[in-house]
Amino acid sequence: MESYIVECRGLTKNFSGKYALKDVDLCLPKGKIIGLLGPNGSGKTTLMKLINGLLVPTGGTVLVDGNTPGPVTKSYVSYLPDNNYLSNGLKVYQMIDFYADFYADFDKKKAYEMLHILKLDEKLRFRAMSKGMKEKVQLILVMSRAARLYCLDEPIGGVDPAAREYILRTIISNYAENATVLISTHLINEVEKILDEAVFIKDGGVLRHASVDELREVYDKSLDALFREEFKCWEN
């Protein structure tokens, strides 16, 4: 029997009566780069948060490598949220020490190497950094872990095209062997070339889940073209 890194069964989350996710059944295999694709408000971030235990399901279950989200799963899941969680008063090296102390799989040397490649000063306070610089530091912290699952929520959403290229390269070249990378984005064109599988999510439900090659073959079009067709906002 195949074991999955993420298993969702009837997973439901509603906010004040409105469903963000409804009855989702989804199994994500190990060792793949998977795109969680959908327009804004489709439920991508909610799913990411449920996997990371930042929200509690209204119904159904979610298992991460066989465990419900909690301290155990957090020790092997590396999460990059779509917002800045760094405390402005801290310096980069303090955050690196913090990560190294709490996560047994954190590689301090790798973090400093990436910092130097990106010419980021470890003595700089986050207060003195631009939004883009903070996003890069967050990505470095997340990718310096040898995690079993990386959850990257819109990692290229707020950066310029040149930085997107670097970020995607950083992700591909730094994720641990046999780990799964789950990337949530609506910038399909940018990530298409690195994905093994794609999950199309719409109105809180899974529309499609297949390998990228299979999708291309069946629909005879690129993932980006398929996405545009599935999620078009107007009719001709």
């Binding site: 957090k74 917002n83 969680y85 760094l86």
Partner: peptide, 13 residues
Amino acid sequence: SDEGYLTHTLPAK
């Protein structure tokens, strides 16, 4: 708030 994303993803009870 935002910093809670870090706090609640720590492998701690």
